[in-house]
Write a protein that binds this DNA or RNA. Sequence first.
DNA 1: CTGTTAGCGCATTCAA
DNA 2: TTGAATGCGCTAACAG
Lengths: 342, 342
Amino acid sequence: MPTIKYIAQKAGVSPTTVTNVLHGNYARVSKATRKKVEKYLKKYNYTPNMGAMILAQNDSRIIGVIMFMEPRWNETVLEDPFSSAILGAIEEEIRSIGYFFMLHTTTSKEEVVRLAKTWKLAGLILVWVPSNISPIIVDSVESPVVFIDSHFNNDGKKYHNVGLKDEEGGYLISRYLISKGHKNAVFFANDTSFEGTDLHRFKGCLKAFNEEKENYHLINKILLTKERSERYKTYSQITKKEMPYTALIFSSDYYATEAISYLQDCGLNIPDDISITGFDDNIFSRMIHPHLTTIHQNPGEKGRIAVSMLMKLIKKQTIEHPNIELDVDLIIRDSVKDLKAK
Amino acid sequence: MPTIKYIAQKAGVSPTTVTNVLHGNYARVSKATRKKVEKYLKKYNYTPNMGAMILAQNDSRIIGVIMFMEPRWNETVLEDPFSSAILGAIEEEIRSIGYFFMLHTTTSKEEVVRLAKTWKLAGLILVWVPSNISPIIVDSVESPVVFIDSHFNNDGKKYHNVGLKDEEGGYLISRYLISKGHKNAVFFANDTSFEGTDLHRFKGCLKAFNEEKENYHLINKILLTKERSERYKTYSQITKKEMPYTALIFSSDYYATEAISYLQDCGLNIPDDISITGFDDNIFSRMIHPHLTTIHQNPGEKGRIAVSMLMKLIKKQTIEHPNIELDVDLIIRDSVKDLKAK
DNA sequence: CTGTTAGCGCATTCAA
DNA sequence: TTGAATGCGCTAACAG
C-alpha cells in the first residue's frame, strides 16, 4: 500500500509536490513533474488513507445517515419500500459526489452526537427525528445537519428539512372521499406517538371534513403499533361492530395494504363493504387488488434533495429554501366506492 | 473535543494509562487510578477519534457492505423487501457489536478493492457478487470477506458464504406443482445473467420435472430485465398466445407479485387461468390476492449469520462451516390451481 | 503499576 | 516551482 511519501521517493520529488498533484493544485507544480508524478501514482496504484486524512484535516468525507426508529429494523419499517427508496437514492447521490455513506439506526440523540464526533462526519442526514430532540442534536453537533420528514417546534432555530406537503395530502384525499359521498371516516396513524407527518396528514383530513356541513365527521384517529398481531386486532374490530363510517384513511400504503389483505381474508369486499385509502404511492399500492387510491410522493427525490442541500451546507453555500415541502398528488385508483353512484 | 492526552493531563496521569483504562487492560492499572481516569473520561465526555485509530492500528472497525447491482438502486432492487430485510439485519448486528456500517453499491471490483484499502475496512460483506469476480476480490483485498448468496466456481479457493438451498427450493416448488397435476411450466429468472441463485433454483425445477415421465416439461426459462416496461411486454405475451403451460415459476416473490397484478389487470384469473409461484416469502406474498404459494427463506438470518461469520474471521477464530446453506420451506397458499381436482 | 517516546499518512505552514 | 518540518490523536514498544 503505497503512501504519498513512497510515491514521492519513487518519483524523486517531495511529498508536498505529490500532494499538490493529488489536489489539483497545478499552479504549484510544473507540468513536467506533474506528469511524472501522475505516472507513478498510477503505476503504484496509490490509494489515500482516510485515517490520515481525518487526522490531518478533521473531515472524513463520510455522511452519516441516521434512521430514527425502534432498535429493530422490523418488517414494519425497513421493509416498507418507501424507506428503501429514500436510502437507495441517498446512497447513490453520496457515492456519485465521492463521499461515503455510513448508515445507522437509533433512537438515541447521544448516539448521534457521538457518531458525528467519533467520525468527524462531513454531514448528517436525519430521517424521522421526533421534534423534541432535533434542536438538541443540532446544538450538540459540529457537522451540518439536514432532516428528512421532520416537523419542528417554532423555536426560532434554523432547520434544514426536506419534507412533504403532508397536510395538503390529507386534505386532498379527504376531499376526494367527500366528493364520493363519504361522510364518516377514520384515520389510522403509522405510529403511536402521533406527531410529525402523521399529525399533519391528520390535520389535512380534519380540515376537509370540517369544511362540510354537519353530519360529516372524521370520526377518530387510531394509532397503529409496531406489533403486527395488535394491528390485526385493530383491523378485526372494523369487521365486527356496526361501522359508523364508510372509509378508512391510512397514513401509509404499507398499512393500508396490510389492512386490505386482512379484511379481504375476513370476507369483506373492498371497496364495496368499506373504502380504503393509502399514502405514499409505493410499488405495492398498484400491485394489490383493488389498486389503492392514495397520495403520491417521490421518496427518491426526497433523498436526492436532502443530499444536495447538505452538500451546500458543507460547502458553506447559501441555501435559499431551507425548508422544502415537496408536492403531493392524488392518485385515484379502485379502493374507494362512489356512494353517490347508483 | 477532549483527547487522550487532555484527559491524561487533567487526571494527572500519562496517556498510556488512559489508553489502558479505555481498552480494559486493567492488569496494567491500579484500581484507584482506573477509577480516577474513568471519572475524567466521563466528566469531559471523551470520544475517540477514529482517524487516529485507523492510522495507528490500521483498522477502522468499519464493515463495508457492498451490494452488487446496477448503478441505480431502482424500484426493482432495493424496494424489494427482501434486500431491505438483509440490510436491516446486518446493520443491527454490526451496530450491536460496536462496529460501523458503510454501505456501497457498485458492480466494479476495482471499486470494492479501493474502498477496502482506503478505509482499512475491518471486513467486507458482499451481496450478490457474480461468480467470475469473487476470486479476484478475495485475492486483492486484505480484509476478510463474507459473501451472501454467491455461488462459486470450483477453483479450490476457500470462500465464506451464506446462502440458501436454492436448488432444493426450486425442486420443492416444482414437485408441488407436479403433485397438483401441472405438467408444463416456465421459469422466470430475476436477472439476465442467469447465474448464481437463479441458475440453482432453475436446476432444482429441472430436476423435479426430469424425474417424471414424458409429457412433463419445464418448458423454458425467461430472463427478466430491470426495465419494467419490458417485463410487462414479457408478461403480456403470456396472455396472448395459446399457452403451452399451466404454471409460471418465478425466482422471486417480487416479480411474481408484479406478474399477478399485471395479468389480473389483463383480465386473467389467478390461479384459474394460470398458476403462479414465487420465491422468498416476502411480506407482500401474503398481502396480495390470491396469496402467493412460494418458498420461504429468512433474509434477516442470512444477514446475521454473515456478520457473525465475518466477526470470527476478523478475530481469526476457526470457522467450522465456511459455506452455509440455509433451509427452505414450501409455503402453500392460493396461487396454484389443483388440476387433479374436479 | 506508570511514563516516555516514536511513528502511523497526510495537509499545511514556511523557507528556499 | 519545489522541499523540509510540524502536528493531528492514538497505540505500542520500551524503560523505569
